[in-house]
């Protein structure tokens, strides 16, 4: 290796770029391994007499899903009303306000419900997962599990992963319902369409495909939130500050991944 002082800025920049890329690839690889290990324990666990505990899955589902219901309802409703306001405002230009229902039904179901739910769960549960695992790593609790012969992936990661993969689609469905309902209230008040007519129209517009589009996405989001949270939490070094950094990184990375995946998913599936 050449002595460091002779390197010019370009070399140093390239080197730093390279290191970042390698670190990134390593992290993605680690996430892949996590998913593979999780699947392994889910399938092979019972045969090795080390099943994934159902009760800890339920604890996680409670935390990730049920406790998020109020805030999801609030956000879902707000998004619905917001879309209705903007939709009516935009369509008024063409004098086509009554067509707003199409826009609301499709965009809430296909886009906004999964996206908002994903972002909210990333902020709520992705960060919590990273913080919990980070602190457990620092306190040697993860080591303690390992020396007790309890695989940390089976014990800590799989319950969170399953809980997220069940609850995020469920929350997505719920937030979609609330959003559509709230939008219906607004549209009804603004345009004088009755709720029954609104519901009829919405059901007519929405196909199973649209619902599955949203659900499919939310399933991917759930896996992303879990894996990114765990990967960041497990790599914590450097005490309390490290936990803070890992938590922040987990949320930022998860939201970024969700939005990018959303775009790619929409591109691949819609075209």
């Amino acid at each position: 290796m050449p002595s460091s002082d002779t390197r010019n800025p370009l070399t140093r920049f390239t080197e730093r770029m390279g290191r970042t890329v390698v670190a990134g690839v390593e992290e993605v690889g680690y996430c892949g391994v996590l998913v593979a290990q999780s699947l392994f324990w889910l399938v092979a666990g019972p045969r090795l007499k080390q099943p994934v505990r159902v009760d800890s899955v339920f604890v996680q589902m409670m935390e990730v899903g049920v406790r998020a219901v109020p805030i999801i309802a609030l956000l879902g409703g707000a998004i619905g009303v917001m879309l209705a306001i903007q939709g009516v405002h935009t369509l008024r230009i063409f004098g086509a306000e009554s067509r707003v229902v199409i826009g609301i039904a499709l965009s809430v179901t296909r886009e906004f419900a999964p996206l908002i739910t994903g972002i909210l769960v990333a902020g709520r549960s992705g960060s919590a997962l990273a913080a919990r695992l980070g602190i457990m790593t620092i306190n040697q609790e993860v080591d303690a599990l390992t020396v007790m012969g309890i695989n940390p992936v089976r014990f800590l990661v799989v319950p969170a992963l399953i809980a997220l993969m069940v609850m995020v689609p469920a929350l997505t469905f719920f937030s979609g319902l609330v959003g559509l309902f709230a939008a219906g209230l607004y549209v009804g008040a603004d345009l004088g369409i009755s709720m029954a007519a609104y519901v009829d129209q919405t059901i007519e517009i929405l196909s199973t495909d649209d619902v599955m589009h949203g659900m499919g996405k939310s399933l991917i989001f759930a896996a992303l939130i879990a894996v990114i949270g765990v990967a960041n939490g497990a790599s914590v070094t450097g005490g309390a500050e490290g936990v803070g950094r890992a938590t922040t990184r987990a949320v930022v990375q998860a939201i970024t991944a969700i939005v990018l995946t959303d775009m790619i998913f929409a591109f691949v599936v819609t075209r």
């Binding site: 306190n139 040697q140 080591d143 390992t146 007790m148 012969g149 309890i150």
Partner: peptide
């Protein structure tokens, strides 16, 4: 692993479980 026991420096007890549950965990799992 079942034949070795470790007492970590900071205890490494799981903070979400009671002392009793912590101690029972290896029994519960194995």
């Amino acid at each position: 692993r079942k034949k070795i026991g470790v007492a970590f420096q900071g205890g490494a007890l799981f903070s979400s479980m009671t002392v009793g549950e912590n101690i029972m965990l290896p029994l519960y799992e194995h």
